[in-house]
Design a binder for these strands. Sequence first.
DNA 1: CTGTTAGCGCGTTCAG
DNA 2: CTGAACGCGCTAACAG
Lengths: 340, 340
Amino acid sequence: MTSIKEVAKAANVSVSVVSKALNDYPDIKPETKERILQIAEEMNYSPNLAGRNLSSKKQMNIGLISSAVFNSSEKDTNAYQVIKGIYRGVEDNNHELSVFLIDSKKQKQKSYAQFCRERNIGGAILQGLRMDDPYFKELVDTNIPCVYIDHITDEKSENIGSISIDNYAAGIEMTDHLLERGHREIVVIGGVEETFVNAKRLEGARESFRKHGIPLPEESIIHANFDEDQAYREATELLKKRQPTAFLCFSDLMAYGIMKAVKEAGLTIPEDVSVIGFDDLPFSAITNPPLTTINQNFFDIGNEAAQLLVKVMEKKQSSQHVMVNHELVERGSVRDIHKR
Amino acid sequence: MTSIKEVAKAANVSVSVVSKALNDYPDIKPETKERILQIAEEMNYSPNLAGRNLSSKKQMNIGLISSAVFNSSEKDTNAYQVIKGIYRGVEDNNHELSVFLIDSKKQKQKSYAQFCRERNIGGAILQGLRMDDPYFKELVDTNIPCVYIDHITDEKSENIGSISIDNYAAGIEMTDHLLERGHREIVVIGGVEETFVNAKRLEGARESFRKHGIPLPEESIIHANFDEDQAYREATELLKKRQPTAFLCFSDLMAYGIMKAVKEAGLTIPEDVSVIGFDDLPFSAITNPPLTTINQNFFDIGNEAAQLLVKVMEKKQSSQHVMVNHELVERGSVRDIHKR
DNA sequence: CTGTTAGCGCGTTCAG
DNA sequence: CTGAACGCGCTAACAG
C-alpha cells in the first residue's frame, strides 16, 4: 500500500511535487521529475483512484448503463461484443468504466442519475434503454455527457452523441438483394416497432420497394419483437395460409425462428423459401444453410461509442451521430430466382 | 451533488450522526435516525463511493480479472454468462464490481496486484488465468481473498476459494452415455491439456472406460485446444484413416468442428457417427442435429463465485471448493447402437 | 446518544 | 521550480 507520501519521502521532496511529476505538470524541473518517476516505479507505486477522484476536478469515470444484457436472449451476443468494444475504448483512453446492468425483472432499481452521482461519473454510454424510461429522462436532465447506442435523440444538446450503423442504407441493401434476385412475394419480419433501428430498416425496405416500383402491402409486414420464438410462431401461422418466396428479417435471431418454421413446414431453404437476416451473429455462419445477412461490427460500435464520449467529455467535439460500417454478407440462404 | 454535510445541516446535526444513521450504527437514537434518513431521502442524497472508500476500512470492492473475454472465440459465450452471474451476485451483496479484462495480444498489461491496489479491491474473482502467469502469483502473494473459476489450487490458504461443476463426474457421465449405448470405437477430443477442467474430465472418461472394462488407447485421445477449427482439422485428418463410432468432446465448440468434419466426410450424425459435447452453449439446441451435451449453468457458477468471495472476505467462511450442478442433456447427436 | 477531531490519498491553489 | 496548506466526502475514534 505504498502511497504518494512515501514516494515523496523516498525522493526527498514534498507530496505536491510528486503529484505534479505524475500528472505531467509543466512547472517542474525535468530532472527531478525523471528522478521521481523512477523512484515511484521502483517502489511499485500507483496512485489510488479513490483519492484521485475525490480531489481532482477531472472526470475520468465513464458509466455504461445497459438493459441489453439481462433483458435479451442468451443467444443474442450483440451486447457482449459491444461491451468489449466499449471496454477497450475506455481503457485505451485511460478512463475508468463502471457498469450498471438493468434487469427489468428486478423490483426496485437504482436511478441512473444516482448511480452516476455515487461514482463521480463524467459521461455515460446508454444501451438498450427505453425512451419512455423516467430514469432515462432524469439522467439526461443532469446534463452529464451521454452517448446512445443504436438510437438518435431529437434533443439538440451539446453533450449528447449517438452511434449506430446506417440502418436505413442497410435496409435498402438487404431488400435490393432480394428484389434483384427476382423475389416478389416477400414477408418482412420486423423487430420492436418503436425502436429506432427497426424504424430505419423499415424505411430502407420501403424505399427499396418504391425504387423497384413494387408494392409492399402492409399485411406483409409482421413485427416479431426481435424474438426468435415469436418469429417462429408468426411464420408457422403464416405458412399455413400462404408461401412467400422470401422472408426479410430485421435480426438473425428472428431469422433462426423463421428457418425453423420453414423447415417444419416441409420446405427447404433456399430452394423453396429464401431467408435474409440482420446482425451476423457468430452462429449465422454455421446454420443450415448458412445465413445471408447484414454484418454489424458490434465491437466497433462499442469502441466508437467510447471514443466519441471521451471527446464530448473533453469538449473537443460537440454532439454528433457516428456511423459505423456494415456489410451484406452473402451465404447460402437466398436463392436467385432467375437462375434455376 | 448533495453531500453528507448538507444533509447534516438540513437535519441540524453533525456529519458523523448522519454517517451513523446511514450505516446502521447502534449508538443513535431511533427517532433522529428515522428523521435523518427521511431528510436524506428527500434531498435525494446518496453517499459518494470514493469518499467512503477512502475513509472506510471496509473493503467493498470486488475485482473480476478475466482473460476469458478477449482470448476466446466469439462463439464462446460462457464467459459472458459467468460474468452476468458475478454481476448479480456482487450487486445483491451490495458490493462494487471492477472489471479487468486481460488481452494477451496487447503489449504491456498492468499487474493484477496493481489493479487491485489502485481500486481498493478487497477480493477478486479470477477467470481463465494461466497458473504460470507471474502476475497471478504476485496477486496471490498479496493475500487478497480470491475465488478461482474452474480451477483448484494446491495452496492451503484461508482466503482462496474455487468453484466449478464436478468435471470428474461429468466426464464419467458423458462417457457412460456413449458406452452404455454400445459405442466402442470412441475418440476423445480434449481441450487444453494443462487445464484443470480438461484433466478432470479426462480422468472421468478414463474411469468410465475402466469401469466398463474397456480399454481407452492413448492414440484415441486428441487435444484440440478447446478450439473449433483445430478440432475440425484433427477430425478431418483422422477420418481419412479410420471411422470411430463416436466423438467425445470436452467442449461444444470443438463438437461443432467435429460435426462439420464428419458431414464433410460424407457421413451423417448420428447414424454413422455420434457426437457428444460439453457446455451446452445456447446454439447447441439448434445445431443439426441438436447436440447431446453436458449442461453447465454458467450464470450459477458466476453467481456462486461472487457469494463465496463475499463470505471469504467477511471471514464467515474459510476457503473451500464449491460445486455447481451439471446435467447431461440428451438431444439428437448420439445413436444407441443396440437399437436399429 | 451526539459532536469534535483526525485522517484516508490525492490534486490544487498560493506563497515563497 | 518547490513546499506548505487546504479540501474533496466520508468514516472512525474519542470526548462529552
